[in-house]
C-alpha cells in the first residue's frame, strides 16, 4: 500500500488549531471532503468515533492514528495534521498528541487496507529519525517526502 500516493498536500495541515480530538478530526475530515475523498462526512465521522470508542488510537510518541472504514469515504486517503497545541488523546503512554494521521478507507474496499496503512505508519514511528524528520518538516511537501520513506522501507 503506497501511503504517499493516497495523500496530497491539501490534506496536510501544519499548525492546525484544535482544542479537542473531536475538533481536530472534524477539521481534517472537512479537508478530506473539500478534496473529494469523502462524500458523506456524517457517516465517516461516525465510523471514526466508533473506533475511538473501542479504545484510544493515540499510540504514543505524541502521535494518534484515528481511522475509519465507511461508505461515506469515496477513495482511500490519509490526512496529516500537526496541531498548534497538544490535545489530550487518552494515549497509551499518557502523553498529549501533537501529530495526527487520519486514515479513511471506503467500506467496499476488500480486506484490511486501513490496518495495513496503520501498521506501516506505526512501525516507522519506532524509528527516531522518522519522528525527527516529521517534527521538523516545514511544508506539506516536506511531510510528503518524509511519508515517502515509509513506502520505501
Amino acid at each position: 500500500m503506497n501511503i504517499s500516493g493516497i495523500m496530497n498536500k491539501n490534506i496536510i495541515f501544519l499548525g492546525l488549531s484544535a482544542s479537542s480530538r473531536e475538533e481536530a478530526v472534524r477539521a481534517m475530515v472537512d479537508g478530506m471532503t473539500r478534496e473529494g475523498y469523502v462524500a458523506d462526512q456524517k457517516k465517516y465521522l461516525a465510523a471514526i468515533r466508533e473506533r475511538e470508542g473501542k479504545g484510544t488510537t493515540g499510540i504514543g510518541y505524541g502521535v494518534a492514528i484515528p481511522h475509519g472504514k465507511s461508505d461515506g469515504v469515496k477513495a482511500p486517503c490519509v490526512a496529516y495534521a500537526r496541531l498548534a497545541a497538544p490535545v489530550d488523546w487518552n494515549s497509551f503512554d499518557g502523553k498529549p498528541v501533537t501529530s495526527v494521521f487520519l486514515i479513511g478507507v471506503p467500506e467496499k474496499n476488500a480486506g484490511n487496507d486501513h490496518l495495513k496503512i496503520l501498521i506501516a505508519i506505526s512501525k516507522r514511528l519506532m524509528h527516531e529519525d522518522f519522528r525527527k524528520n516529521l517534527e521538523q518538516a516545514k511544508t506539506p511537501e516536506d511531510v510528503l517526502k518524509v511519508i515517502q520513506s515509509i513506502d520505501e522501507s
Binding site: G55, I59, L115, L118, I119, K123, M126, H127
Partner: peptide, 16 residues
C-alpha cells in the same frame, strides 16, 4: 488484543 498497532511497534522496536 486491543492496542491497534502495538504488536507491530513492539516488533519494530525489538528488531531495531
Amino acid at each position: 488484543p486491543t492496542g491497534i498497532a502495538h504488536t507491530y511497534m513492539a516488533a519494530e522496536a525489538l528488531q531495531q
